[in-house]
């Protein structure tokens, strides 16, 4: 009963927020609706018992990716009229994408109602559901059977990160302001920076 209420609650909000994401006129509102959809999708994950995935969804997508997204969208200077002017030109492409997505949805629904596929294991035995928590099950798979793939993925991400840094790094130009040396700044004492002078009246200070 409560599970059903919770499911329909989260599901309605996900669908509603997804619709509002594409319907709302202000891009910032769109991003906020998208975040709403993410968050409620995490609620659905909790309902099916995948609490680890749910938390990761919130931490990674809501907490990091969507914040950066919001960040960028908030600072965009968009001319809404110019944006809508392209509507009729892009409509056929959009309709084509929509048709493909709809067909896929129908296919997926049809396949689902036809019955689940039998997942095979190398020795031919059926997949067993085990009574361990999400984290342990995922950890055992990621750091056990798929350790090589997992580490390759990690290396690829590291390379991508280094690539982004290399592309945006600018060596300080000669003649530009010196870079900050924090240790030097904190070591600086009043005696190094100031001089006490006691000039005679009408004498001025010799620097």
């Amino acid at each position: 009963m409560i599970q059903a209420i919770a499911f329909y609650f989260f599901a309605t909000i996900v669908v509603g927020a997804a619709v509002m994401t594409i319907m709302s006129k202000n891009p910032v509102h769109s991003v906020l609706w998208l975040i709403m959809a993410f968050f409620n999708a995490a609620g659905l994950m909790v309902l099916v018992g995948a609490e680890f995935i749910a938390m990761l969804l919130v931490i990674v997508y809501v907490g990091a990716v969507a914040v950066l997204f919001l960040f960028v969208v908030m600072m965009l200077d968009i001319d809404f009229a110019a944006m809508r002017a392209g509507f009729s030109r892009n409509a056929p492409l959009g309709l084509a994408v929509a048709a493909v997505l709809l067909a896929e949805l129908l296919l997926a629904a049809g396949a689902y109602s036809a019955g689940g596929i039998q997942l095979g294991t190398p020795d031919g035995s059926a997949v067993q559901a085990v009574e361990v928590s999400n984290i342990e099950a995922l950890g055992a798979l990621l750091y056990g059977r798929y350790i090589l793939l997992f580490e390759i993925a990690g290396i690829i991400l590291l390379v991508a990160m280094i690539g982004a840094i290399v592309l945006t790094f600018q060596a300080p130009k000669p003649g530009a302001r010196a870079r900050q040396d924090v240790d030097k700044q904190t070591r600086r004492r009043p005696e190094d920076a100031t001089v006490m002078k006691n000039p005679e009246i009408g004498q001025g200070v010799d620097l």
Partner: peptide, 17 residues
């Protein structure tokens, strides 16, 4: 819950909004 610490991380990452 057995993901209590992750839950706190998730919720505190929302506070920026």
């Amino acid at each position: 819950i057995n993901v209590g610490l992750l839950y706190i991380l998730a919720i505190s990452s929302l506070s920026v909004y």
